[in-house]
Structure formats: structure tokens, C-alpha cells
Amino acid sequence: MNTLVAEPSAARPRSAPAVDPAAAVARTRARPGLGDTFNQTFAMAWRALKKMRRNPEQFFDVALQPLLFTAMFAYVFGGAISGDVDSYLPLLIPGIVAQTVLTTCMATGVQMREDMDKGVFDRFRSLPMSRIAPLAGPMMADLIRYLIAAVLTYLMGLILGYRPGGGVLGVVGAVLLAVFTGWALAWAFTWIGTLARSARSVQGISMMILFPLTFLSNAFVPADTLPGWLESFTRINPVSHLVSGTRDLANNGVITAQVGWTLLAGLAVIVIFMPLSVASYKRHL
């Protein structure tokens, strides 16, 4: 406690400055390079991973939701929709994967908002670092969440008797597609996170977007059972593409146009919302 650097004030008459500001100015660079951005993003991802390990309760929703929803939906709707539980599972499991991944994106946005309100973000802002790193870093770390969510859903399905026709490769492909889509969509929720006033409002806004999107899709029911106007909506709903894409991969082991549309939609979301998020984050300065 007492081992502080400086001697008491007696040493007031100072020696010549050891720091040469002119040299320091000459060393500065106008903007962060690509390599810097990369390293900073990884450093921020490291921070997010550390935080996840310290606060494992964050994983409760990611872990519990697929387990709970899979079992609930399978037994409640299975008989009504597909005649029995076993024939409902191939329809349901990809739907649950999509739903879980979307909810997990929402958590990304909410936590971003919470994080940005903390004092440490003042320091990030004052550091000569890339403005995208504080956003992209946590999102990299969140890939793990999407992975956990998707894998757990499939495991729960397997336990209930789901036997995916696409085999291991098909399921792996489906998981990867879901993880990618989740990561891409997280940029949209991060953008909401940088705009909203509080973490609570991020949650509220995100819920209002998420619920219609997941339920007005083919995630839990065959789309042709819906009234015409609703069916047309579910056909253009990106969640439907994700669900169909993962079904095609996991149940049939084929890469269809649905997979392509899902990837395209994901890329579109990134292209639109990544710059928006960064711009909005900068405005917060």
C-alpha cells in the first residue's frame, strides 16, 4: 500500500522531461490498421469469454430454453399437428433451433447495452482502438452461445426419439447454418442495443420483433395449414427460410435453395446493421 512511486514534494524542481512529445506525435497513426482491429476484436472476445466464465448464470436461458421448449412443444402439439410425437420431431427440432438462436441474439443486444453503460466503456472510448472491436469482440464470444443452444436442442431431440435423416454431416451443417444466422442477426439486435436507452428497453423492443417473427413462420406448424394471407407472410419471413434450410440439412442431408436464401439474408443483415451499429456506437461518444 505504501510503496508508491514518487518521493514527497521535496523533489519539485524537475529534471528535463524524459518524454518527448514531438516524437510521440510523430509515432501516432491516423487510424487503426486492419491488423490492430483484428487483435483488438480478439482481445474484446477474450474479455467477453472471461466474463461468461465468471457469470455462468448467463447460460441458463441458453441451456434451459431448448430443453424446456423441445419437451413442451413435442408433447403438447405433437399429437395435434403430426399425429404423434415422433413424426412431429423432424418438423419441430429445426424450429426450436431457430427460435433459440434468435432469443440468444436478443441476449447479445441486451448485454451489449448493459456493458456500454459501465464505466469501463469510457476507457474503451478514450483508447486509440478500432470502434468496431467493442461490438465485434463480444459477438465473436457469443458464437459459443449459439453453438451451445443449437447443440443442446439437437441433443434433446435425440433423447426424445428424433432420428435426423441427414446424418451427422447434415446435423453439423444445420447447426452451423443456425450459428451463422444467429451471429448475423445479432448485429441487428446490437444496433437496437446501441440505440435504446436501457437494457430493459432493448429486451422489450427485441421481444416485439422476435415473437411475431418466430411464431408467424413455419417453425412449429406446417405453413399450408395457415390462412392464405398468413401463409404468404411466412413464405417471405426469413425465419422460415432458416427453419426450412435446417430441416433440409438435418432431415434430408441436402443443401437446398432455402439454405442459400438463409445465408443471403444473413449476409444482408450484416451488411446493413454492422455499419449502423458502429455508427450508432460512435455517436454515443
Binding site: V5, A6, E7, R14, S15, P17, A18, V19, P21
Partner: peptide, 13 residues
Amino acid sequence: WNTIRGLVEDGCT
């Protein structure tokens, strides 16, 4: 305070 004085002795402003 001592720490801050030390900074300036190291040449900081």
C-alpha cells in the same frame, strides 16, 4: 498526490 507528482517527474504533462 505523490503519484501525480511522480508522473510529472517522469516527463508527463
